Amino acid sequence: MAPSGKDKRIDYIEFNVSDIGRMRAFYGAAFGWTFKDYGPEYCEFSDGNLTGGFAAGGDARTGGPLVILFADDLAGAQKRVETAGGKIVKPIFDFPGGRRFHFADPDGYELAVWSDQ
Rank of each mutant, 00 (worst) to 15 (best):
M1E: 14
N49E: 05
I88V: 13
D72N: 14
L50V: 10
Y27T: 09
M23N: 07
D11K: 10
G98V: 11
D116A: 07
V113N: 06
A104R: 10
F45W: 12
D47R: 03
G21R: 05
S46T: 09
F31N: 03
L74A: 01
A104K: 08
V67M: 09
D116N: 09
H102P: 03
P106D: 03
F70E: 05
L111Y: 07
T62F: 13
K79N: 06
D11A: 14
Y12H: 14
A60R: 11
D7I: 13
F95M: 11
I88N: 03
W114A: 14
S4T: 15
A84R: 06
D7R: 04
T83G: 02
G21N: 12
G39L: 08
G32H: 05
D94N: 11
S18Q: 15
V67R: 01
G86C: 07
R24E: 05
G52S: 07
G32F: 09
A30N: 08
E14P: 07
P96S: 04
P91Q: 02
A84Y: 05
K6I: 14
R61H: 13
P65H: 03
R99M: 01
K90Y: 04
Y38Q: 06
A71M: 10
A60S: 15
S4R: 01
S18L: 15
F93L: 07
D37H: 08
I20Y: 06
G48V: 01
G5N: 12
P40R: 10
T51A: 08
A104Y: 11
W114Q: 13
E44Q: 07
I68Q: 11
E14V: 14
K79R: 14
D59P: 13
A56V: 10
A56G: 11
C43Q: 00
R80G: 09
G64R: 04
K79Y: 02
F35A: 00
G21W: 00
G86I: 02
G85Y: 11
G97T: 03
R80F: 14
E44Y: 06
A77Q: 13
G86D: 01
F95I: 10
A29E: 07
K6Q: 08
S115V: 08
D47K: 00
A2Y: 08
